[in-house]
Design a protein around this nucleic acid. Structure first.
Lengths: 396, 396
DNA sequence: CGAATTAGTATGGAATCTGAACTATATGGC
DNA sequence: GCCATATAGTTCAGATTCCATACTAATTCG
């Protein structure tokens, strides 16, 4: 804590508003007295803080419920389900937009499939139409959207709204700030870019296996292999903002050239293309090839089994190093790894046990069950978390 | 910031004391007016805060210095050089203790060589005598010691004062809490355990190459290969407290068995023993063998050159993965790597460029110049930083 | 229907910041 | 030398926000 900024007396209230809101968020229904007991604040302070939170619109007072206990019943406080955020996702062969409320529930969800390719302008134009459909539907329902998040499969600079590089979209240094603003015009918090694997890692934290692990490495298997690090229920982005990129750990010092310019990266043996070609699977769309691979595995094709086993082996090599490096003991595998769970798990566990015995135990290896909405939910959820972290900002 | 603890009005002062002290720390000599200008606090607040800091004894008022400027001259404020911390180190073949003042200068330094081996009790008994010599010398000089740090080559649990495992000392689950207290009886902040590589990484930050890099991976080459991660001028310890351990990244999936139970770890090709035996160097003490290796290299021995080159190559493989994983662009090499700089640098740079082109540029590779006092200075320095972070704790 | 119990509000006191007015101490021009 | 100017530091009133205590409100139990 190399404290730079001086503290003001008002900052105390900023923090306590967040503390009180956090207490409300963690239970179905709270009363002022319960909040005081849980946070350690006095009843008087809580009364004042709750008044402020009611003013932000983030919480609502629901009537008293006589629960049969002795004494005056408290009046219930709940998160306002009429507040939410936009979540959006650009991926290689589809676009998605949705609205997530303060409780984390997906209230609206729109997806369109589209052929790969297109400039950032074209793609974001299509996405805007989709987002408009989603937001008007939500607003017709009485919802107010506070901000939004857009997940893309690539490295991003959220501060400037720029996609630095997204090889599978063919984008490089794409400045999207204006397009982001257009997705949700006039929202208090705007729309922020994020990396798809990071967003999926957060979605896993909030809506998936996150209840089991406080610290883990999430690995997203797509055409590329991405990753996100969660420490203490927070995303760890690293100094440059791109930590957790396991796809380019070196697992075969004498291996193939990688698209990143390096050699023997994990992606060259465990990315989708690598597995498909090792298994001898052709096809046009990713979905088709994935189906064909699963079919071959089911049919007992030794070629397919060996391809997946090899991927699992090298995934284990990479995860052994990664787990040691950042000192985590759990990994969650998403994307194609989740679909291949049954076939990839044995070789992965063997490999982990042999390269880093005891570091990642078998029950520290989990497979994602969230499917394709993970990134979208994570992107919207991260904006909602910002609201929870500083509700004060919503007070004029 | 999943804020849990409610804020009090008093917390504002806690923070502002640290802010003011930080402003004083960053310049040779400050005045209240300068502090106000630099921090954004008002002159009135700074006056009050400085009064509090004077009470802690951490700063001193030195007389006014007429500098020829117009207007009333400010009265100078400086860090009190009579306050400091104990730094201590247990290593395989020596013990060290020293006293570091608030400016980071080593005021007393005591080292004894000793044969390897000994139980934690024996070793800490010897260390206590050494520490007593150092502290009485410092106290005779008028110094007051606020706390201390002890660096050991192994994984530690600072909260409980336990060495979890230190293979090169032969220690395992050694509970040292009482011995730590005995090193500096009655000090306000006590003595805290730390990992040697982490402490050296911090020493590098404060007294070495840290001025050039805000984020880097420090690699300590000893019998084992340890590491420490510095992000944003802070040590990143990871969820379990042991992040940055590069010694056990897998660099040869088909390589040798490692003492950690894994296979093909960096340590098996770049640790001191690995290099010595690959170079065909025998000898009893580490210092002797190191001297022999340097002699062989100077004499142009192809065997020695190849051993070091191989170590550099695999060090590059590990650092390529590590840098990608945690997204740093600089590494600082200490321990035997620093001594071998001239011979190891070329193969390391080639390897980095080939496995992670552009990630760690050549001028992001630095070699430590701190020598053997690094860990001691880091251990003491980290306690002093705690003082800087919360000076309030020193007020009655 | 009153005693007991719990929820929530109102009020006074303490801590601490800010801003403006004030005092202290220097330089520089005449 | 003296006074205007400039800068450093202090004092004091006002604002904010917390806590502690006393109070009012609403319910259950006997």
């Amino acid at each position: 804590m190399q404290a730079e900024a001086p503290g003001r007396v008002q900052d105390v209230r900023r923090q306590n508003l967040a503390v009180a809101l956090g207490a409300i968020q963690r239970t179905e229904r709270s009363t002022r007295a319960e909040i005081a007991a849980r946070t350690g604040l006095t009843k008087a302070s809580v009364s004042s803080l709750v008044a402020g939170l009611l003013e932000t619109g983030l919480i609502e007072e629901v009537g008293v419920t006589r629960d049969g206990e002795r004494g005056r019943p408290g009046s219930g406080l709940v998160l306002n389900r009429q507040r939410g955020a936009l979540g959006a996702e650009v991926n290689v062969d589809y676009l998605a937009a949705g609205v997530v409320d303060l409780l984390g529930e997906v209230r609206v969800h729109e997806v369109v499939e589209r052929p790969p390719g297109g400039s950032p302008e074209e793609v974001l134009g299509e996405l805007r139409a989709l987002a408009r459909r989603a937001t008007t539907a939500a607003e017709a329902d009485g919802m107010v959207l506070l901000g939004g998040g857009l997940a893309v499969p690539g490295l991003v600079d959220p501060a400037h709204g720029t996609v630095l590089t997204a090889p599978n979209l063919g984008w490089r240094n794409a400045a999207l700030a204006q397009h982001l603003e257009a997705l949700l015009p006039g929202a208090p918090l705007g729309v922020v870019l994020s990396n798809e694997a990071n967003s999926a890692a957060l979605a896993e934290l909030w809506y998936g296996h996150g209840s089991s692990f406080r610290d883990y490495l999430y690995v997203s298997g797509e055409v590329g292999v991405g990753g996100g690090l969660i420490f203490g229920s927070e995303l760890f982005a690293g100094p440059g903002g791109h930590a957790g990129e396991v796809g380019h750990l070196v697992v075969q010092p004498d291996g193939q050239q990688c698209s990143c310019g390096g050699r023997g990266c994990l992606e060259t043996v465990a990315g989708q293309h690598a597995i498909f070609s090792a298994a001898g699977i052709d096809g046009t769309s990713t979905a088709d090839r994935m189906a064909a691979l699963l079919g071959a595995l089911d049919a007992g094709s030794p070629e397919a089994a060996r391809a997946v086993e090899t991927a699992g082996h090298y995934l284990g090599v990479a995860l052994a190093s990664a787990a040691r490096m950042v000192n985590v003991s759990a990994v969650i595998l998403g994307g194609h790894f989740a679909g291949l769970q049954k076939w990839i798990r044995p070789s992965l566990l063997r490999s982990l046990d042999s390269y880093a015995p005891g570091v990642v135990p078998p029950d520290g290896v989990a497979f994602s069950g969230l499917g394709q909405t993970a990134a979208l939910r994570g992107a919207a959820g991260s904006r909602l978390r910002e609201v929870f972290a500083s509700p004060h900002d919503l007070l004029n």
